[in-house]
């Protein structure tokens, strides 16, 4: 009893002594409380028949009605399928930045290496709006670069933007074009931590360039790669809203409607607040479970995990 009292007094003393630190924490904590934790409480409306007039607490309970409504709607299969296809396709391009980093690490012409890095980082700074604008302009079969190229060879350009079948490829590969260089930075940083004497020793032992990549560089990148992969899989159902929404049109909607865009349309465009929140909550919970599962698996099969 007296011991815990002493402990408490000690803690209070530490808090009083460091009051300045709590002052520094205050703005961020208050902002999170107001704009992250209060909305979390607002998730309750997924289980209620919410109407703005009655408020969250007074609205009648709806139980799992809105979840069932989503599971039984014909949009359920479509949005889940589209989200998964785009997500898995993206994850499949995951090794590209790694290969890029291994490549850059092998370049000895310093001037060229610098130019190459600068140029491959650059598209990352293009905004999503401009990026989708570029896609529409350049790949237009009528008067875009792609159309011109095809006509140069006397062929008719395909309409990539208006094709449902090409949507996921278009989405994923333009993403690779824009971000692969930037995403490789973290691996380049990891490679720069390799002890040069390792390479020397390998050379003395007669290891070829390829063997040095395979047995020194690649193991060096593994922890970073696994950490990033866990995070990616944790976001499996979280295909970003911004780019998909901008790329959508009437012709490709059957493969471009993902959970995030559906939540937006149901919620803000047709004001079905409770239904939209239920769909979103379902999405968040699945992501959360996936993150924990993948982290467990990573812990079990390798020494790398998030926590």
């Amino acid at each position: 009893m007296s011991q815990s009292n002493a402990g408490m007094l000690h803690t209070l003393g530490r808090i009083r002594k460091n009051w300045g630190l709590y002052l520094l924490l205050l703005p961020a904590a208050v902002l999170l409380l107001l704009f992250a934790y209060i909305p979390m409480y607002g998730v309750l409306i997924a289980f209620k028949d919410y109407s703005p007039a009655t408020g969250i607490l007074e609205s009648p309970w709806a139980g799992f009605n809105y979840f069932e409504k989503f599971f039984n709607s014909y949009q359920f299969d479509i949005t889940i399928k589209n989200t998964l296809v785009i997500s898995l396709y993206s994850i499949a391009t995951f090794p590209i930045p790694i290969m890029l980093a291994l490549m850059i690490n092998q370049m000895r012409a310093n001037r060229f290496k610098q130019v190459f890095q600068t140029v491959t980082y650059m598209p990352h700074f293009i905004s999503t709006v401009v990026m989708v604008g570029l896609i529409l302009i350049l790949l237009s079969p009528g008067n875009g670069l792609l159309g011109n190229l095809f006509r140069l060879f006397g062929a008719e350009a395909p309409n990539l933007i208006g094709s449902a079948g090409m949507f996921s490829s278009l989405y994923v590969w333009t993403d690779v074009w824009q971000h692969a260089g930037w995403d490789s930075i973290i691996y380049i940083a990891a490679l720069s931590a390799v002890d040069p004497s390792l390479y020397e020793a390998a050379k003395v032992d007669g290891a070829s360039r390829w063997q040095r990549i395979r047995y020194i560089d690649m193991p060096m990148l593994l922890p970073t790669a696994i950490t990033l992969l866990i995070l990616r899989i944790g976001g499996l159902l979280g295909v970003g809203f911004e780019k998909v929404y901008l790329m959508q049109n009437n012709l490709n909607i059957s493969s471009s409607e993902v959970i995030a865009t559906y939540v937006y349309k149901i919620g803000l465009l047709s004001s079905q607040y409770s239904f939209s929140s239920a769909i979103n909550l379902f999405n968040t919970v699945i992501n959360f479970i996936l993150l924990i599962l993948v982290n467990q698996a990573a812990k079990k099969y390798s020494e790398n995990s998030l926590w």
């Binding site: 992250a36 909305p39 998730v43 993150l291």
Partner: peptide, 27 residues
């Protein structure tokens, strides 16, 4: 910093869980 672990969790939790579009909009 007393309570460092709990405060860190308070921050990090928001990276993985959020209210979502509509509850945030209503707030």
């Amino acid at each position: 910093l007393a309570g460092r672990k709990a405060i860190t969790l308070f921050f990090i939790f928001t990276m993985f869980f959020n209210g979502g579009l509509i509850p945030t909009f209503l707030t």
